[in-house]
């Protein structure tokens, strides 16, 4: 029994005059009714379509059970797209977390211009993904690119960023990190500020240097926050779609762009896109299980 229950039962009794005792409409049920619309919504528009995609991946347009959709996407380079998706995701996560940790640490200190700094840092968060993709396509463009113009003005050689798939993936990682580091920094900052400064100070008095203070004091205490940030960003990282589409098109192809390339509602390739989609789904489930298991996200919203 929680508080609301024990409190409200007399109220219900009074209204019903105590006539219907067999089935009593508890107030808890009313509260459940408040939740039903949201739940029904996500079941109808998220879980059901996801199941449809899984079934569709084993079907032909005439609803026969086949495995050929999978062999089709494998021949389209599914394996490399999986590898590339992992490279891009992990690379982007590493860049974001290093930058965000630096920013969050700086924001726990006092300095002149802190307000201006935090406003500047938050700006990319408000910039649309498509816009950031467009801007970075101009920054890294081989002809008329601002990155090369900068390199040349320093007396260095210009780089053709689109010459191989690794440098292309670096562009995607970098653009993605620019937009998403502010979010990670904000999350990490909330973890760092909840950390008592006396802990760090006493470690300092005991002679621990900056690195050891970070490893033994800060890191264990922000582990949970880190795991949450990692989960939120990691899942979106595997889903990265608009940025690679604008920056590098279908070369190298990632899992999401592979799904999109085959997306055609009036063609057999629709079922290929379902097959590729299933891989993406498996991927994300595995990744989040690993993070939950390793990061120790113990309690959800337990206040």
């Amino acid at each position: 029994m929680n508080d609301a229950d024990s409190f409200s039962t007399p109220d219900v009794d009074r209204r019903n005059g105590g006539i219907r005792k067999q089935f009593q409409w508890k107030e808890t049920y009313t509260y459940f009714m408040f939740i039903v619309p949201a739940l029904a919504y996500v079941i109808a528009l998220s879980f059901y379509p996801a199941a449809e995609a899984v079934f569709g991946s084993f079907q032909t347009p005439t609803k026969h059970f086949v495995l050929s959709n999978y062999s089709a996407v494998v021949s389209m380079g599914l394996v490399t797209s999986v590898v590339d998706t992992v490279i891009v995701s992990i690379g982007a996560l590493v860049i974001q977390f290093l930058l965000a940790l630096a920013i969050a640490t700086i924001l726990t200190k006092k300095f002149v211009g802190k307000g201006a700094f935090s406003t500047l840092i938050i700006l990319p968060f408000g910039v649309a993904t498509v816009v950031s993709g467009f801007i970075f396509s101009i920054v890294f463009s081989a002809v008329g690119g601002y990155a090369n113009s900068f390199l040349v003005s320093l007396g260095l050689h210009p780089v053709n960023w689109y010459s191989n798939r690794y440098s292309e993936m670096v562009i995607v990682m970098f653009s993605d990190s620019w937009k998403n580091t502010p979010l990670v920094a904000l999350i990490l900052l909330s973890g760092l500020t909840s950390l008592s400064p006396t802990l760090r100070e006493s470690a300092m008095v005991d002679g621990a240097g900056p690195l050891r203070r970070f490893l033994y004091i800060t890191a264990p205490n922000v582990k949970g926050t880190m795991a949450i940030a990692m989960m939120i960003r990691g899942v979106s990282e595997f889903n990265i779609f608009a940025l690679p589409l604008i920056l590098i098109g279908y070369h190298p192809i990632l899992l999401t762009t592979l799904v999109y390339e085959n997306y055609n509602l009036s063609s057999v390739t629709l079922y290929y896109s379902y097959a590729a989609a299933v891989f993406l789904l498996i991927f994300i489930l595995v990744f989040s299980s690993v993070i939950i298991w390793a990061g120790g996200v113990k309690s959800y919203a337990s206040s």
């Binding site: 379509p49 799904v259 989609a277 993406l280």
Partner: peptide, 8 residues
Amino acid sequence: PGIVVAIP
């Protein structure tokens, strides 16, 4: 994944 759900 948005793209998985969006197509169905």
